[in-house]
Amino acid sequence: MTAVRGEVVILASRYTGDAEPGLRIGQACRRALHSAYSVGLTLAVDAALAQRVSLCAAGPLARKGEELQISLGEGPCVQALSQRAQVLVADLDDPEATRHWPVFAQQAKAHYIRAAYALPILHGADAAGQAGLALTLYRHRPGPISEADLQVAQDHADAADLLLLTTPVPSQDELVHAWLLPAEAVVHQAIGMISYRHSLSTGQALALLRAHAHTQSTPLPSLARAVVHDHFTLLDPPASENGEG
């Protein structure tokens, strides 16, 4: 990140040493905005953007918005990070604006999210292929975001980045547990069962569960309950178990 504004440095200094800097920055951002938004902060910890952690869900819309983006693997923050550009969608009913994340748009609207604005922060002189951070604003009514609120959001995103630059990248197991904080306990159980059944790491089990939920347009907790309680399997058994081969 280059040419950091003085206001950003001052803002970041208020939360230096905080146990949950991402959460505090997101909450501060929500208070500072001129209009009513919910605020989410997502960290992509690998260059392929395959592993993401929601660091903050401040406000009534953010928890579901962040959960959908993590579980579906699509949404405004994913697009913003992959394209390395702001994604400002004033109306989720606009199919052209949401063509990169149609499933997210459909499910987000069912939870009263009508507009979303994602601001990515990427590291390095050439940020292509690098992990990154994205701050997403969610709103219950359509309409463009004001320049004043866009600047507030950008300052808080930059401040979060300054703080998180000194935070160690989580291990795979830490990543799974961090991602599961807003989720139901049954998701954790399902990941453990998938990992055991198919000799996968917890990260691979999470990726498999999320991919299946995405392709079937099924909420992640619902799929997890099917795995845990209905013995639903995500992978076909080996041919030998079917008497083939």
Results as ranks from 00 to 15, higher is better:
residue 15 Y to T: 03
residue 72 L to S: 03
residue 199 S to W: 09
residue 137 L to C: 08
residue 20 E to N: 15
residue 230 D to R: 14
residue 157 A to W: 03
residue 97 A to C: 04
residue 49 L to D: 01
residue 45 V to C: 05
residue 239 A to Q: 09
residue 212 H to Y: 13
residue 162 L to N: 02
residue 12 A to F: 10
residue 106 Q to R: 14
residue 188 H to S: 07
residue 207 A to R: 11
residue 177 H to D: 14
residue 137 L to E: 05
residue 212 H to T: 13
residue 82 S to M: 13
residue 226 A to K: 06
residue 89 V to A: 05
residue 181 L to F: 13
residue 152 V to F: 06
residue 219 P to H: 07
residue 122 L to W: 00
residue 154 Q to R: 15
residue 17 G to M: 11
residue 89 V to D: 07
residue 232 F to Y: 15
residue 56 C to M: 00
residue 98 T to G: 03
residue 71 S to P: 07
residue 12 A to S: 14
residue 64 K to Q: 10
residue 213 A to G: 08
residue 9 V to H: 09
residue 198 H to G: 00
residue 69 Q to V: 03
residue 129 G to N: 03
residue 185 A to Y: 15
residue 240 S to Y: 08
residue 180 L to M: 13
residue 204 Q to K: 13
residue 126 D to C: 07
residue 143 G to C: 12
residue 20 E to R: 15
residue 33 L to G: 02
residue 93 D to S: 14
residue 6 G to K: 06
residue 108 A to W: 02
residue 235 L to M: 07
residue 114 R to H: 15
residue 229 H to D: 13
residue 204 Q to S: 12
residue 234 L to Y: 05
residue 16 T to K: 12
residue 70 I to Y: 02
residue 169 V to H: 12
residue 3 A to M: 13
residue 192 G to P: 03
residue 214 H to A: 10
residue 198 H to W: 06
residue 200 L to K: 05
residue 62 A to F: 08
residue 102 P to D: 11
residue 25 I to V: 14
residue 76 P to V: 03
residue 241 E to L: 14
residue 82 S to F: 07
residue 183 A to L: 15
residue 68 L to Q: 01
residue 75 G to R: 01
residue 19 A to V: 15
residue 239 A to Y: 10
residue 224 A to I: 02
residue 181 L to I: 12
residue 45 V to Q: 06
